[in-house]
Design a binder for these strands. Structure first.
Ligand SMILES: [Mn+2]
Ligand SMILES: [Mn+2]
Ligand SMILES: [Zn+2]
Ligand SMILES: [Zn+2]
Lengths: 133, 133
DNA sequence: ACTTAATTGATAAAAATTATTCTTTATGTA
DNA sequence: TACATAAAGAATAATTTTTATCAATTAAGT
């Protein structure tokens, strides 16, 4: 198991067992909703409070340890922060996949045309995955 | 003023004064959050119920008269359905602008690589608008 | 004009999120 | 290693957001 204690401390967060388990769950499961994370956590900490989940998600968001992905027509999911990437969403099975799309050139072009200084993109491509055609 | 009565009827919705005003407000203001729409509506209908706002937003979403734009780190906004487009978000002043970006070629490429059948994109570019550099 | 199903406003209920309080604990320091 | 302390946890209350219920009203077809 990876050293999540240090990961947490790097982000100015005390390494509690609950937090270590949250990071571990996100690492193992990928994108998770709060309710799913809560169910996973309940298995390990039978008396964990839902407020603990919310508080930690918010803290981890503030400290950029995790980030939120807003899914069309569904609840947000959270994931460990990694290099910028886009998302594929299967509208049938709900599966969410990471996909590396190089948007630099495109974003540069838009930036020039619109005079917007763009430093972040959220790109979600929805449809049907190969199992759901 | 545009004929929103027919617009509503085309979408199988009874043309009530409240609905006509919602469509009109969205046309005039562009992207609106529920709370902002409610405040606008209160000016016209001093006793309109917040439930009416929610019910109509949901109905209009179902009937594809409007669509939801999920904004990073903020509440969703709604807009009248128009041809597919992307969004520019100013992180400083909160301004949201439409921008037409041709993603067809890019999406085709991703579709082939990932074996995903993609039929919709949500693309939000965040940064600072020209007034907020 | 009449009929009827749909919509509205008022309100209650439910769901989601945040705040509070008291107890426990992680972590830095002696 | 023990101690001090700020931070975090569980429990729970409060708040916010959204949906459901219901009686009165109204849009729209005949
Ligand atoms: Mn991802
Ligand atoms: Mn738009
Ligand atoms: Zn699928
Ligand atoms: Zn701006």
């Amino acid at each position: 198991m990876i050293n999540y204690t240090n990961t947490l401390r790097k982000h100015k967060l005390k390494a509690t067992p609950q937090r270590i388990a949250i990071v571990d769950a996100l690492f193992l499961n990928g994108h998770m909703s709060t309710e799913f994370l809560y169910s996973i956590m309940l298995a390990k900490f039978s008396s964990i409070s839902l407020a603990t989940i919310y508080k930690n998600i918010n803290l981890m968001l503030e400290n950029c340890l995790i980030n939120e992905v807003k899914i069309p027509h569904a609840k947000s999911v959270y994931e460990l922060t990694k290099s910028s990437h886009s998302h594929l969403l299967c509208k049938k099975c709900g599966n969410i996949e990471d996909v590396a799309i190089d948007l630099e050139e495109l974003v540069d072009k838009i930036s020039k045309i619109t005079e917007f200084q763009i430093d972040k993109t959220d790109f979600i491509l929805s449809g049907n995955c190969k199992n759901c055609h």
